[in-house]
């Protein structure tokens, strides 16, 4: 039952994100736009690039969708409203999202096009930038909760949300999550002005629809993770827990989708340098500070 509810809310959430993304990219706010767009996509030819690596080409978008769905499985929307409350939920989330890299490289390699291929390899470079900054802030979150279970992590924020308890970790995690979901200004693998769509460049019709849906699911999963780890999950006064989850996840996702509209894309080399030199030092400092606070002030 809860699986069905989660999947339905996922579908609703993906649609809401599509509305927001449309606004962020094309500047039109239209509630019905994505529905028409999806229907139109289904009617278009789904071209297979010549000399493509068929297996990679077909599997890329599907694997991306699967990775996103697996990540969603450990996001609690309300007490008891979670697909599976794994004891190692936070770690599982990270493991599931590791397949995003694989899927994107497959999708980039598969169609045998230069833009897509460069985009796929760019994402491999990007992985090096964001990967540590996803795991290390999660470590600090788990330290406070003394558990890797996402439900426990939300419960541990009863007194004080992690966004206030470890603001540095919050910032690092959000930036890394945007890198993982290749959202602007970290959208190196589908940079329209540089690679004409990059990994998406050769996908059309149904396959493109799957790819776009998968992207929305991944963004939702990451927004859900941000809410779970830092914004107190379902916690909040007056409203029912599921409503809090929905509001928080949508707000975070909308912020992630729209912030890139107001700045140019980052340079790949600078992104890597900043992530490693600055990001990892800060993440280590965050772990240390959280460790000290957890020992000294038990909240």
């Amino acid at each position: 039952m809860s699986i069905l509810v989660v999947l339905l809310s996922l579908a609703a959430g993906a649609y809401a994100l599509a509305v927001i993304e449309r606004w962020a990219v094309h500047g039109h706010l239209s509630l019905t736009g994505p529905a028409w767009a999806a229907l139109a996509l289904l009617g278009r030819e789904s071209l297979l690039a010549r000399k493509s690596d068929r297996l990679f080409f077909e599997l890329g978008p599907v694997l991306l969708l699967v990775a996103g769905l697996m990540a969603v499985a450990v996001i609690p929307l309300a007490p008891g409203l979670i697909i599976t409350d794994l004891a190692t939920g936070a770690l599982f989330l990270n493991a599931a999202l590791a397949y995003v890299l694989v899927a994107l490289i497959m999708a980039g390699w598969g169609p045998n096009g230069a833009y897509a291929m460069i985009a796929g390899w760019r994402f491999l470079g990007q992985f090096i930038a964001y990967a540590m900054l996803i795991v290390m802030p999660i470590t600090a979150v788990a330290m406070r909760a003394e558990s890797l279970s996402t439900v426990e992590i939300v419960a541990s924020q009863e007194q004080l949300w992690n966004v206030l308890y470890q603001p540095m970790g919050f910032i690092l995690f959000v930036v890394a999550a945007m890198g993982l979901a290749w959202l602007p200004p970290l959208d190196l693998p589908d940079a329209t002005g540089e690679l004409a769509g990059g990994v998406e460049a050769e996908y059309t019709g149904v396959r493109l629809a799957v790819l776009r849906l998968a992207r929305m699911v991944i963004i939702l999963a990451l927004a859900g993770a941000t809410v779970t780890f830092y914004l107190g999950g379902w916690l909040g006064p007056w409203l029912p827990p599921w409503a809090w989850s929905a509001i928080k996840i949508l707000v975070v996702a909308a912020a992630m989708l729209s912030v890139g509209r107001y700045m140019p894309r980052i340079r790949e080399a600078r992104y890597l340098a900043l992530s490693w030199k600055l990001g990892i030092s800060l993440a280590l400092a965050n772990i240390f500070v959280v460790g000290v606070i957890a020992l000294v002030v038990p909240i």
Partner: peptide, 12 residues
């Protein structure tokens, strides 16, 4: 330039 660099607000 906005279009190329993904600075879509500027492009619009």
């Amino acid at each position: 330039f906005g279009l190329q660099s993904g600075f879509l607000w500027l492009a619009a």
